[in-house]
Design a binder for these strands. Structure first.
Lengths: 213, 213
DNA sequence: CGGAGCCTTGAGAGCTGTCAATCCGGGTGG
DNA sequence: CCACCCGGATTGACAGCTCTCAAGGCTCCG
């Protein structure tokens, strides 16, 4: 098992914290600044590009037949979105900035022609997609765990290196939302785990305690 | 809190109804029968193929550095898995049958050479991956909704056609696990929604009530 | 007619979200 | 150098909600 590879795979996944997947090789993106409420594209618009969130947060939503709004996805910093529009003429949902956001725009025509012309680039693109799919499935499975301490523990396990140490990037608060908890519940979970002797905390890092191989 | 408890929770999955993608065009799979507990591949094994579950259920799990097991994904009938192994020499997790399962095996060498040789097939494959990624994100977002009635309603909205009618395939019980609820909570949610006049139930179908466009 | 499985409802417990209060460390202005 | 302020970290109290366990009712089928 190659743990560094594993880390990279996860990076495609827990994007909110591990910033930035690799940009699309060989295609230089444009930047677009969005103010809260700004719309990047709407359902039915002709697809003009795929995107990556440099900073901010984008809500992908769809208006259902009965007129109500369904959130398809909340895209956070580092994440890419609307890849599927490469294979479709139009967007199938709205993309609206929740907060001030900086978006990288990869023009569809350019990406498309490049992927069509260079099978190797397409191969890499598919690889990227497959990795993100795996990551998404992992996140999904994590969500199935109802107990907050258990969920936090599993998350830590997935993020830990071979030494069982997880370096905490910035505020633990941000991790909370990543795991799908309020920060209070997250702190309580950490406290409980520490009390049980299953983790040890120090500033900027968390260490798993237990049978390390 | 023990693992068997989780197994039950984890069994909640939406794929049984939602998924069932097209098989890989132009490549004929082999079948493999697995008994409960049988291992399809292990972490570190040389990647020999990608798979689709014809029937049964496969647990993808990884042993973490501290020796504990983390479920990466529970694969259900219709779903494809281990696509990422196309881009990697080895598998990064274990695949174990939870129940008797029938697996379609697409040999890696064959898939790989076909995708390499025919850019159009690779394009389709990427399209498929992008679609699955979107679907996974949608499922993930649905999980974020805490209120059971709200979650059920959103799920119904996503599944409804333009007429706002959802035909219920078989037991409503199965839907419950798809939405990530116990069947009791699901019934209660439906009852609440009906009481509020937001849906109407009849045998075999549910109709959304509200401003249809 | 009987049974099996699904549908439905009830009661209670446990857990997380919410609201609030406190502590703490660093940066800032006086 | 120190008081002050701000945001994060932490803990407490409480309400609301879902899960669990349990008990009928209903429908289809043998």
């Amino acid at each position: 098992m190659n743990w560094s590879t594993y880390t990279i795979n996860l990076a495609c996944d827990m994007t909110a914290i591990i910033t930035a997947g690799p940009p699309l090789a060989g295609v230089t993106p444009e930047h677009r600044q969005l103010a809260p409420g700004d719309c990047l594209f709407s359902q039915g618009d002709r697809a003009f590009g795929i995107f990556q969130v440099a900073s901010g947060r984008i809500r992908l939503q769809r208006i259902t037949p009965d007129g109500s709004t369904v959130t398809i996805h909340l895209v956070r910093a580092g994440e890419m979105f609307a890849e599927a529009s490469l294979f479709s003429e139009h967007y199938h949902c709205d993309a609206v900035a929740e907060i001030e956001s900086d978006i990288l725009v990869y023009p569809k025509a350019e990406i498309s022609s490049r992927l069509r012309a260079e099978p190797e680039a397409l191969w890499q693109f598919a690889k990227e997609l497959a990795g993100r799919l795996q990551g998404m499935r992992t996140r999904f499975e994590l969500k199935q765990i109802r107990s907050a301490p258990e969920r936090v523990l599993q998350w830590l396990r997935m993020r830990s290196g071979g030494d069982g140490v997880i370096r905490v990037p910035g505020a633990a608060k941000d991790i909370a939302s990543e795991v799908g908890l309020t920060h209070e519940a997250f702190y309580r979970a950490l406290a409980a785990l520490e009390k049980q002797g299953r983790i040890a905390r120090s500033t900027g890092a968390i260490r798993l305690i237990g049978r390390l191989k």
